[in-house]
Structures are given as C-alpha cells and as structure tokens.
Computed example of a mutant assay.
Amino acid sequence: MNLRGLVSVTGKPGLFKLVGQNKGGFILESLDKAKIKTVVNLSTTKMATLEDITIYGEEEEIRLLDVFEAIKANGGNTVDVKADGNTLRDFFREVAPGHDESRVYTSDIKKVISWYNIIKELPLFEEEAPAPLA
C-alpha cells in the first residue's frame, strides 16, 4: 500500500493529495468528488501523512497502514460510520487488536473508517510502498 502523498489536515474534513509546493505552502487537492485545490501554510496549519499516523496501542502504537491492511485482508468491508458505538468498537477490535480503548475514541474510529472508504478505490491503495532510502 503506497499512501505516501496522502495527508490529513487539522481542521479540514476528508483527505488530501499533495500535488505541489509554492512560496505560500503546500498545494493540496481534496480526494472527494469536488477535487478542490487549496494551499496550506505549515506555519498556521498542521498536516500529517497517512504513513506517519499511528493509533494508541496498549503496548505499542499501531500504524494506520497496518489497520488499513487488516481491513483490506478482512474483505475490505467496513461498518457504517453512523453505527452505534458498540458496533464501531467491535469492528475496531477486529482490525486493530491491542488498541488502547481508553484513548481511542469513537470519533477516531469513525475517522479511520471514513478515510479507508475514501482511499480504497484509489490506484495508490493497490501499489506497493517504495522502499525506504538507505
């Protein structure tokens, strides 16, 4: 799974693809149907690549990519983000065993599910991640 150019921006819903950089900051394109381009200034906005995001674990942090892989291995089926908290929590126990239930909130689970549903149709989702630079 190669999600290197995909980012989450604090305060903005959805996911974005990093398409360039200019003097004002990074140029992002939304991954929804609107494909809106926006410029994000890093001095005022926080941004995180999906590859860098982790989820609180009981013993160690769980990489978001590992959760996405577990969902994909489970047939790619998710629960409705509008499902009740118990249904969401049960689903997350399957795909992210060992997550810290006291620090991973229902809103976090909903975000992971919605992100998965956004990216599952993207060609990057099927690509292998490039090898890290030595």
Rank of each mutant, 00 (worst) to 15 (best):
I27F: 04
I109L: 08
P132G: 13
F125V: 06
K120P: 00
Y105E: 05
N2R: 09
A73S: 14
K12G: 01
T49M: 11
L122Q: 15
G14T: 11
D80W: 04
L133A: 14
S43M: 10
N41L: 08
E128Q: 14
E128R: 14
A73N: 15
V79P: 04
E121A: 13
G75K: 01
T44Q: 12
K111Q: 12
R4E: 13
I109P: 04
D32K: 03
E127H: 13
D90G: 03
E121D: 15
I55T: 01
P13G: 08
E60P: 00
T54H: 07
L65H: 07
K120N: 09
F26P: 00
G20S: 07
T54A: 05
P132W: 11
E101C: 00
T54D: 01
T10V: 07
N41K: 12
S114I: 02
E128P: 08
I118T: 15
E69Q: 15
V104M: 02
I109R: 04
V40F: 11
L18N: 06
D108A: 06
W115E: 04
N22C: 00
A134W: 10
L133I: 13
P123L: 11
M47T: 14
K72D: 15
P13L: 09
K82E: 09
E59K: 09
M47L: 15
L6I: 15
D32H: 08
W115N: 05
I118V: 15
K72Q: 14
L124N: 14
G24M: 02
Y105F: 05
K23I: 06
Y56L: 01
I36Q: 12
P130H: 15
L31K: 10
F125S: 10
V95M: 07
K72W: 09
L42F: 07
E59P: 00
K120G: 04
K33R: 06
T106E: 05
G11R: 10
M1E: 12
A96K: 02
P97D: 02
P123C: 06
S107N: 08
K17V: 04
D80T: 05
Y116M: 09
P13T: 10
K110L: 01
T38A: 06
K111S: 09
N74C: 00
T78A: 05
P13K: 12
V40T: 12
R89V: 01
D32Q: 02
V104W: 00
F26Q: 01
L6M: 12
E128N: 14
G20D: 06
N41Y: 07
I119L: 15
T106V: 05
V67A: 10
F91G: 01
V112G: 03
L31F: 09
D108V: 01
G85H: 05
N77F: 07
R93D: 07
G14H: 08
L28R: 08
G75R: 00
L133M: 11
A34C: 02
G57E: 04
A73I: 02
I109T: 05
M1K: 13
A73R: 11
E127Y: 14
L88I: 03
K82S: 11
G85T: 06
W115S: 03
F26L: 13
